Amino acid sequence: MDREIQRSESPLSRQSRPTPTQSSAEILALEPVGAYHRLVLDTGSDVAARVSPGHFAALAIGGRDSSMLLRRAFSIHRADPGAGSIELVFAVHGRGTKALAAHHVGDSVDLIAPLGTPFPLSGGPVAAVLVAGGYGSAPMFGLAEQILDRGGRVGFVLGAASADKLFGVGLARALTPHVAVTTDDGSYGSKGRVTDPLPGMIRELGATEVHSCGPMPMLRAVTEIATAYGARSHTAVEEAMACGIGICMTCVLPVVGEDGVTRFERSCTAGPVFDGTKVRWEDAGTLPAGLEGADAMNPHRVPAR
């Protein structure tokens, strides 16, 4: 039976967002896509209709008797309210994702969705560049479609370590002619990082917004470039999340509030999408000076999670 999940939120991060639902979701498709896996789940139209680009889902892996107690969080790639399904893309990294990849069509998984704060959307047309590393591009195609539906323009900058770890290049090119691709080893597109073609793409589109998803160093660099060119930076962080609903505090980041005070904000509720200029990227994983409630004179590392 489906049940609604109530999340713990601070007044600062509280926004209008859908209440997530816990349910048993049947696997409709599970197949390899390059270096990744594509997973389609039957969630019912109610859950799918509440998904916006940037939302994520948390899956329990292994069943009631499993030693893998923590849920795994995955960005939602697509939602189809008509079919009552959502689509996830994941890479096999450890025991949890390996166990998930071993499932079969017809199996069921325990799901909580939609979770998190999605990418903000302007009411009118805008020009935006969407930047992603690896399968961090998963939520970007639905976001691009919504921007285009509002009369805006989009460009993509997609990067990965190698060609097999790129995701969605064809999807991007089906949406816009403005697509730049980079790989660290030069096996596809230009050799280099996503930050290399980003300034040119911002200028080409006259972009006022840059949306990004990927590892922390990339998000920090993208934010610095976007800010230098006068564009707003919206970043979807890839923090490890143990609960996904704002209780455990394992995914906190130091974020500067509208009042100028730095607080630990939970990536699972206040994020995963943050204003990149508000995140203290260099202080992630520490108790930084000026943090509300911490000893500002003696910052030290947060114990490893």
Rank of each mutant, 00 (worst) to 15 (best):
S187W: 09
L175T: 03
A226H: 02
M218Q: 02
A221W: 05
A231N: 03
G200Q: 07
V222D: 00
T176W: 07
S190F: 11
A236F: 02
M216T: 15
S233V: 00
V237T: 10
M241E: 10
T208E: 05
M218K: 03
P215Y: 14
H234D: 02
T182I: 10
R232Y: 05
L198P: 01
A226L: 01
V179I: 14
L198I: 04
G230K: 04
V181C: 10
P215M: 14
T183E: 04
P197V: 12
V179C: 13
G192S: 01
P215W: 13
E239C: 09
T223S: 07
V210Q: 03
A221F: 04
A236R: 08
T208G: 10
G186H: 10
A240C: 13
L219I: 02
G189F: 02
L205P: 06
G214A: 11
A226C: 01
T235R: 12
V237A: 06
V237H: 04
T208K: 10
A236M: 07
T235L: 11
P217C: 06
R220S: 07
V210D: 00
M218R: 03
D184R: 15
P177T: 15
S190P: 09
D185W: 14
A207L: 14
L205C: 06
G186N: 07
E224M: 04
P197Q: 13
G200M: 05
A228Y: 05
A207C: 14
L198Y: 08
G214K: 12
M216L: 14
R203E: 06
E204A: 11
I202F: 02
D196I: 12
T183S: 07
Y229N: 07
E224G: 02
V210E: 02
G214Y: 08
G230M: 04
M241K: 08
V222C: 00
M241W: 05
P217Y: 11
V222N: 00
A221H: 07
D185H: 12
G200D: 10
H234T: 06
M241T: 10
Y188N: 15
D184F: 13
V179Q: 13
L205D: 09
D196Y: 07
L198N: 03
A236I: 05
E209N: 04
P217H: 09
G206F: 03
T183P: 01
P197S: 12
Y188G: 15
P197T: 10
T208W: 06
S233T: 00
A236H: 05
A240W: 12
T223E: 06
T183H: 09
C213D: 08
E239L: 13
M218N: 01
A228Q: 10
P215L: 13
D196F: 05
A221Y: 06
L205T: 07
G200E: 09
P197W: 11
P217M: 08
R193T: 15
R220K: 09
A228W: 06
A221T: 04
G206P: 09
R203P: 00
C213K: 10
C213S: 09
L175H: 09
Y188P: 14
